[in-house]
Design a protein around this nucleic acid. Structure first.
Lengths: 343, 343
DNA sequence: CTGTTAGCGCCTTCAG
DNA sequence: CTGAAGGCGCTAACAG
């Protein structure tokens, strides 16, 4: 098999350029103390031989790893993939490599924090959208590298996320504005993050909106489910079996909302005529279902997290708590409620 | 900052265990020639000091990198995320790290193949669901490592994928069986992979099914769009503006089908009464929309690709061409056509 | 079975 | 501005 890279080392290019090893090294790393002429020559030779440093050797001799670990739950979900895309883009632009660790079960999660497979392999780790507990935090710090969180607040690390309370309010206020008073909430909670502030805050938005509107919360209208469309569908079934069903449903996420919609349609009811539905996230599948929702720029959050990492690595200043704005997107799953008698 | 790992090296554990450096090394790598007693002792010390090898040093001294690069277009799409999840899981179980390269534009793609950022950094690269051209193949081989493809056939590398022709036939045969004769196709093509066998084969399934049913293809019923729901929605608009619209639509993917559904609904038509819709993939959003589709196990394909990588790295035998079966999933977007006059 | 000895490829003082 | 020399932490022959 034809293979160049295995053979071309710094010595080679040094020899070919007629300089010493160290000069070649300096030139490549554009360090001080190399004449422009020499540098150009070295660079040319390197280019010609298509040389690339051995990251291993470089690192061993005192450099950084040039890698960052990204820990993400459920990589196949749009939200995380999108965030990862934003993150990857800025890391790549800085020539950093991304080591991916998917943590989609409690077992994998434990494994990750106990074994710390990324130890000694990265310059930083970013935790995507799930809360690390106290113990995990300690393990992480054993790695002795920069840590940043994205997609959720963190007490311990710099983070970037949306304000879930506000997002919840935007959804609820829209429903309230339309005239709904009997509004259900399907709260989503992932087993990986029970009690994660995200879900709580989205719930808090529900309660505070109701209170402000002078409506007493009815706990029979509140369902908490494991994150996901199928779960949302099930919860909606429960809601529809109430003697006095809601005229509108606020779901913590678009996936959950989509599940609810399926149940409503299967029940022969129409949206939004009979029941309004709103979600949060602005998931592309939601757009395809004409779902009213609250938009958040997920990819941008990933990118910001990436920039935070870069700043941290360069020991530059950075904002340790960035909140990205959200925005109501009205599509066609919400409308004013019909009179009760008409239904 | 408290930090253990930076300090504990092989020498330390060797000294603490009262053995030489090389013995310690052997013990840790469970190589031949170490008494059980010694090994146990070394391992114990290593555990106690929570030692981890420096991958850089290890690699430099002759080992492998313990990393594999994964090149994926559009990481935020369910299909790729799912595949990645399967892949990550098996790689992780083999203690291999996954270096992620997202290639979502032509520019990034060119950048990747020209600069080969993964050069000298990995033991293998897996190309996820996009075709590498001849030139790219040459660049890739410069890396001198194992290469495997997943999610699409490859002439040059071992691969795992579904049979797109069969998948297309399963969708079409279902429609035909229901009695449809005027069937539209919305073909999806990603700019990243024009002419990628996948799309072609899914199209081939359309034509071969029609032919076998004795139906002359009507090119006005065939639309080719860039991959994605919004594009599918647009194409459906064109189809509905025909003097004689189709009674059923076969979309190359669930996303495209979902887009088509939105357009049909917005036009005030009902599914499946007025028009049937079928997709391919079994995307979770499709399930939430009760979309009839052809299922493929994406995660499993990723896992198989992972196992193929492992086998290749161990120089074991492996099947260089694995086809994963697909299966028709009937939900509620397909039904027999109504009589024309009734519409 | 175990210890000694060379490097792996590069960066970084240190002299010139 | 440049070259020589000493590791970085580990593995892989070699000897014992």
């Amino acid at each position: 098999m034809y293979n160049v890279s295995e053979k071309v080392n710094l010595v080679d290019i040094a020899g070919r350029a007629g300089v010493s090893l160290s000069t070649a090294s300096r030139a490549l790393n554009n360090a001080y103390g190399v004449s422009a002429a020499t540098r150009t020559r070295v660079l040319a030779v390197a280019e010609e031989l298509s040389y690339v440093v051995s990251p291993e050797a470089s690192r061993l001799a005192g450099g950084s790893t040039g890698r960052v670990a990204v820990v993400v739950p459920h990589i196949s979900r749009w939200f995380f993939g999108e965030m990862l895309a934003g993150l990857e883009e800025v890391l790549r632009s800085a020539d950093l490599d991304l080591l991916l660790y998917n943590i989609d079960t409690l077992d994998h999660r434990r494994h990750f924090f106990e074994r710390l497979p990324a130890r000694r392999k990265v310059d930083a780790v970013v935790v995507l959208a799930f809360p690390v507990d106290e113990q995990e935090r300690k393990r992480l710090e054993l790695m002795g590298v920069a840590i940043v969180a994205a997609g959720g607040q963190s007490a311990s690390y710099p983070f970037v996320c949306i304000d879930d309370h506000i997002a919840g309010r935007q959804a609820m206020d829209h429903l309230l504005f339309l005239g709904h008073r009997r509004i259900a909430m399907i709260a989503a909670e992932t087993p990986l993050a029970p009690g994660w502030p995200k879900t709580n805050q989205r719930s808090a938005g529900y309660y505070s909106a109701l209170e402000e509107a002078g409506i007493a919360p009815d706990e029979s209208l509140v369902r908490t489910v494991d994150w996901g469309g199928e779960e949302g569908a099930k919860a909606m079934g429960g809601l529809l079996s109430l003697k006095d069903p809601p005229t509108a449903v606020y779901a913590h996420s678009d996936e959950v909302a989509l599940g609810a919609i399926r149940t409503i349609r299967r029940a022969g009811l129409r949206i939004p005529e009979d029941i309004s539905v709103i979600g949060i996230d602005d998931h592309p599948a939601g757009a395809l279902a004409d779902l009213t929702t609250v938009h958040q720029s997920v990819r941008e959050q990933g990118a910001i997290a990436g920039r935070t990492v870069l700043a941290a690595l360069k020991h530059e200043e950075f904002d340790p708590a960035i909140i990205v704005p959200t925005e109501l997107i009205i599509r066609s799953t919400t409308a004013p409620p019909r009179r009760r008698g008409v239904l």
